[in-house]
């Protein structure tokens, strides 16, 4: 008897779940006009809406005094799985304390090798590098894909704790 009960129960529970699914897509269908998520990209360059989690390209933000937060600790270089990041940070003597200390000279970023995996951003202790929201990165020469992220003449923000 329970076998027969299960047979009919399976029919009705199956129909119920099918209707649940159809209710979801039916709601989408009815509200397709106002809830469309497609953006008509080349036409709406001015009003393009990007999402926070989008990973475009690695950049190093600088403030108005041309200060960045990179201490040259090389954590991102070690974290990078395919060697897209090269850090040139020679040790120099700090004039105040007399200790030797790394100072960032060049933060070299090879966009041509980068898979945008986000590991460098996660490993950075001072949040010196972030993912940008831009995505139009095509260039005509491969050498343009190798960038130096710290701007010329920039230096470490003194407020950053090492």
């Amino acid at each position: 008897m329970s076998a027969i009960g299960n047979y009919f129960r399976s029919i009705f529970s199956g129909l119920k779940t099918l209707f649940q699914g159809m209710a979801v897509t039916g709601y989408y269908f009815r509200n397709a006009r106002k809830e469309i998520i497609t953006q008509q990209y080349p036409d709406n360059k001015d009003t393009l809406r990007m999402y926070d989690r989008f990973r475009g390209i690695v950049v190093m933000p600088h403030d108005e005094n041309n200060l960045h937060a990179c201490t040259g600790c090389s954590a991102c270089e070690i974290a990078c799985p395919n060697g897209s990041i090269e850090i040139i940070a020679p040790r120099v003597v700090d004039p105040e304390t007399g200790k030797k200390k790394k100072v960032i000279n060049q933060h070299i970023y090879h966009y041509s090798m980068c898979t945008l995996c986000n590991l460098c951003i996660l490993s950075c202790p001072t949040e010196a590098i972030v993912m940008d929201q831009t995505f139009e990165h095509a260039v005509y020469d491969r050498s343009l894909l190798t960038q130096i992220l710290n701007k010329p003449g920039s230096s470490l923000n003194p407020n950053v704790k090492e």
Binding site: T25, Y28, F29, A32, E35, I36, I37, T38, Q40
Partner: peptide, 10 residues
Amino acid sequence: KVAAWFQLRI
């Protein structure tokens, strides 16, 4: 067109 509307596309 109908498929697009069901998936919130254009």
